[in-house]
């Protein structure tokens, strides 16, 4: 063509011409959705401390298990996607979003077999979370260990 924008000009032009989700509205939806999951978690925690007589630490673990189970079920019935579509970060941030990221490839890739399908792909999205979670706590753990040995803490 005779007149072509430079890459920079083009990027800017695209930026201007691309519509965006309403950020404010999105934030409200994320707030409500994410808040609701946390509220549910808190409710579970209180109930278990009250009726099952569990300590805080144990009941928190149960909350995790219950929320994960709930999310896996919602994923299986293809409902979790709708929650995240509405709530954005509100569906992604809670532990339920993590469970959704484990369950969805497991279901999707079952056709490719037990080992290379489910076995490998189950970590497609969640793998990095586990890796970097473990590794970052390892790095900070080293700092903590050294600090302790040198008597800074």
């Amino acid at each position: 063509m005779r007149k072509e924008p430079s890459k920079q000009e083009y990027n800017q032009m695209v930026e201007e011409m691309t519509p965006k989700h309403n950020c404010f509205l999105n934030c409200i939806k994320a707030f409500v959705t994410g808040g609701a999951f946390c509220l549910l978690g808190e409710f579970m925690k209180q109930m278990m401390m009250k009726y099952w007589g569990l300590g805080k630490k144990d009941s928190l673990m149960f909350v995790t298990i219950e929320l994960v189970l709930l999310s896996v079920l919602l994923t299986g019935f293809n409902l979790y996607g709708k929650i995240t579509k509405f709530g954005g970060a509100g569906g992604l941030v809670p532990i339920t979003g993590f469970a959704n990221s484990v369950a969805s490839p497991a279901i999707e890739y079952q056709k490719e077999g037990q080992v290379f399908g489910i076995g490998v792909k189950i970590f497609t999205i969640a793998g990095p979370v586990i890796l970097y979670g473990i590794f970052s706590s390892f790095v900070i753990g080293i700092i903590y260990l050294l600090a302790k040995q040198w008597g800074w803490m």
């Binding site: 519509p19 996607g81 579509k85 969805s104 490839p105 497609t124 999205i125």
Partner: peptide, 13 residues
Amino acid sequence: RFPLEYGNQRPLS
């Protein structure tokens, strides 16, 4: 992209 059951918010574009 993602497995079909995975939830994410698609941009308007």
